[in-house]
């Protein structure tokens, strides 16, 4: 599984990345977490509000700082 956190480096984006890692640890899942900060790449996902979360190249959330529980729900 490849998980990408899209964000231009604001506070919420960093928090989202931490939450993703936490969710993965709690679920004991092994996944590759990537931070995408390049604006052109972010836009290529059609996302206009950051932070956004991409799982296996599919946008699952945009413009929201998801909680650890919410991410767990999305990854299951």
């Amino acid at each position: 599984m490849v998980i990408k956190v899209l964000g231009t480096g604001c506070k919420k984006c960093k928090e989202l990345e931490q939450n993703v890692r936490m969710a993965l640890t709690q679920l004991q899942l092994d996944a590759q977490v990537e931070k995408v900060e390049d604006i052109a790449k972010i836009m290529s996902y059609g996302v206009m509000s950051t932070p956004a979360l991409v799982v296996n190249e599919k946008v699952v959330s945009a413009g929201k700082l998801l909680s650890v529980d919410e991410i767990k729900g999305l990854l299951k």
Binding site: I39, A40, M43, S44, Y45, G46, V47, M48, K58, V59, V60, S61, A62
Partner: peptide
Amino acid sequence: IQLGESVVQ
């Protein structure tokens, strides 16, 4: 910049 299709649920 090319914008992808947005499929926000």
